[in-house]
Measured scan of single mutants.
Amino acid sequence: KKEGHWDCSICLVRNEPTVSRCIACQNTKS
Results as ranks from 00 to 15, higher is better:
27 N>D: 13
14 R>T: 12
16 E>W: 04
15 N>V: 00
16 E>I: 02
20 S>Q: 12
1 K>I: 14
3 E>F: 15
16 E>Q: 02
26 Q>I: 04
15 N>T: 03
6 W>K: 04
27 N>I: 09
20 S>M: 06
28 T>R: 07
13 V>A: 10
29 K>C: 12
12 L>V: 04
26 Q>R: 14
7 D>S: 03
30 S>W: 01
20 S>T: 11
18 T>K: 09
13 V>D: 03
28 T>G: 06
15 N>S: 05
25 C>W: 00
28 T>N: 09
26 Q>C: 08
17 P>C: 05
15 N>C: 01
16 E>R: 02
17 P>V: 02
23 I>C: 14
30 S>P: 11
5 H>T: 15
14 R>H: 07
17 P>K: 02
2 K>L: 04
23 I>W: 06
26 Q>V: 01
15 N>H: 08
24 A>C: 05
22 C>P: 03
26 Q>G: 13
24 A>G: 11
14 R>M: 08
25 C>R: 01
4 G>W: 01
19 V>K: 08
29 K>Q: 13
27 N>Q: 01
17 P>M: 13
24 A>P: 05
10 I>W: 07
27 N>W: 03
15 N>R: 01
2 K>G: 12
25 C>P: 02
22 C>E: 03
13 V>W: 06
13 V>T: 14
22 C>I: 00
13 V>F: 07
24 A>E: 09
30 S>A: 04
26 Q>W: 05
13 V>L: 04
30 S>F: 06
25 C>D: 04
23 I>S: 14
15 N>Y: 02
25 C>I: 01
23 I>D: 05
14 R>W: 06
24 A>Q: 07
20 S>I: 09
21 R>A: 12
27 N>H: 12
17 P>G: 04
19 V>H: 06
19 V>E: 08
2 K>S: 13
18 T>A: 03
30 S>H: 12
11 C>I: 00
24 A>M: 04
12 L>F: 15
28 T>K: 03
20 S>L: 13
27 N>C: 11
26 Q>M: 07
20 S>H: 13
7 D>F: 07
22 C>K: 02
23 I>E: 13
24 A>S: 03
22 C>G: 05
24 A>R: 07
4 G>L: 15
18 T>D: 14
14 R>V: 11
16 E>F: 00
29 K>H: 08
26 Q>K: 12
21 R>S: 12
30 S>Y: 06
20 S>G: 06
26 Q>N: 03
16 E>K: 01
16 E>V: 02
13 V>K: 10
28 T>C: 05
25 C>A: 03
24 A>L: 10
17 P>N: 14
21 R>T: 14
23 I>Y: 08
25 C>S: 01
17 P>L: 06
23 I>N: 13
22 C>N: 12
3 E>V: 01
29 K>W: 13
21 R>C: 10
20 S>C: 05
13 V>E: 07
3 E>H: 05
29 K>R: 07
19 V>R: 11
17 P>H: 08
2 K>I: 15
26 Q>L: 06
27 N>T: 13
10 I>L: 05
14 R>C: 10
21 R>L: 04
29 K>G: 14
20 S>R: 08
21 R>V: 09
16 E>A: 03
24 A>F: 09
22 C>S: 02
17 P>Y: 05
28 T>V: 11
20 S>P: 09
28 T>Y: 00
19 V>P: 01
1 K>C: 15
17 P>T: 06
7 D>V: 07
12 L>A: 15
16 E>S: 06
29 K>F: 11
22 C>Y: 00
23 I>Q: 14
12 L>R: 10
29 K>S: 11
17 P>F: 05
22 C>L: 01
25 C>E: 04
24 A>D: 11
30 S>T: 10
25 C>G: 01
22 C>T: 04
26 Q>H: 07
14 R>P: 14
23 I>A: 15
28 T>F: 08
15 N>L: 00
15 N>W: 01
22 C>H: 04
14 R>S: 15
25 C>K: 01
27 N>M: 13
26 Q>E: 08
20 S>V: 12
16 E>C: 06
13 V>G: 14
29 K>P: 14
